[in-house]
Simulated assay, not measured.
Amino acid sequence: MKLPYSEGSVFAVPLRSGGFGIGLVARVAADDSGGVLGYFFGPRREAVPALESVSFLNPRQALRVVRFGDPFLLNGKWPILGMLKNWDRGMWPMPDFVRKDDLTKTAWRVRYSEENLTQAISEAPEPYDSVLERAAVFGAGAVELMLTKLLP
C-alpha cells in the first residue's frame, strides 16, 4: 500500500479542546508496521494552517519527539499539509529514549534502528530521573491528548 505521507511530511493534529497542533514525520518504519517517529510543535492554531505558514519548523523547537501509530494519517483525520521544503533527514535525528522499571527504579537509555522503529539496537544504564522521552509507542489518540495538554 502506498502511504499518503513520507519522511518530511507535515500534518495537523486536531486538539481535543479545539484547534490544531503540528506534526512532522521524521522516520517511517520500513516494515509496513505503521510506525512513525514524529516531531510535534505549537503554538495552538485555530484552523488547519497552510504549509507555507509552518515551513519554518526547526527540530530544536519541537515540544515532543515520539514514536506513534499512523491510523489517523491514513484515514485523513490528521490532514497532511505537504512536504517540508528542503527536507534533510540528517537535521531531524532519531533521539535516544528511556526505558524505566518503576518497581526497581532503574532505567536504560535505548537507541532504536533508523529503519525499524521497534528494534532496539543498543541499551545502556541511564539515571532513573532521566528527562529523555519514554520508550513507548503512542496511539494516535494519545498524541492528540498529549498535544491538547501542551497547547492550551
Rank of each mutant, 00 (worst) to 15 (best):
Y112I: 09
S33T: 08
R134E: 09
A136T: 15
E144R: 04
E123D: 04
G76D: 13
P14G: 08
L63C: 03
L15D: 13
R111D: 03
V13Q: 02
L74N: 06
A12N: 09
G76A: 08
T118P: 02
G42I: 01
R109A: 02
R111L: 03
P71G: 14
V131I: 11
L117D: 14
M146N: 03
K2H: 05
G23T: 01
V66G: 12
A62S: 14
S113N: 13
P79Y: 07
A140S: 15
G35N: 09
P125K: 12
A120E: 07
W92E: 04
P95R: 13
A136C: 10
T148N: 12
W87Y: 14
A26E: 11
V137F: 13
R27Y: 09
F40T: 13
L117C: 11
G34N: 04
G38C: 06
G90Y: 04
I80T: 00
R64G: 05
F11C: 07
G21H: 00
N58G: 04
A120C: 08
F138M: 13
W108L: 13
V10R: 01
A142N: 12
F20P: 00
F56Q: 12
V143F: 04
R111N: 02
K100L: 14
P59T: 10
P43E: 06
V48E: 01
M91V: 12
G42F: 04
F11P: 09
E114R: 06
W78P: 13
Y112S: 00
T106K: 13
A120V: 06
E52A: 03
M94N: 11
V25H: 10
G19T: 01
G19R: 06
P79A: 08
D129E: 15
K77Q: 12
G8H: 00
Y128R: 04
V65L: 03
V48G: 00
P93M: 14
F68P: 09
T118D: 09
L132A: 06
V10A: 02
P49W: 00
E114I: 08
A140C: 03
P79F: 04
L24D: 03
V110L: 11
D102M: 10
R44W: 15
S55K: 00
E46T: 07
E133D: 07
R44H: 11
P49T: 02
K2S: 02
A62Q: 07
E123S: 15
L63A: 10
M91S: 15
V36P: 01
A124V: 07
A136S: 11
L74A: 01
R44G: 04
F97A: 08
F97M: 01
N86V: 03
L151Q: 01
D31R: 06
F72Y: 15
V131T: 14
R99L: 10
V25T: 00
P71T: 09
P59E: 05
L74E: 09
S113E: 11
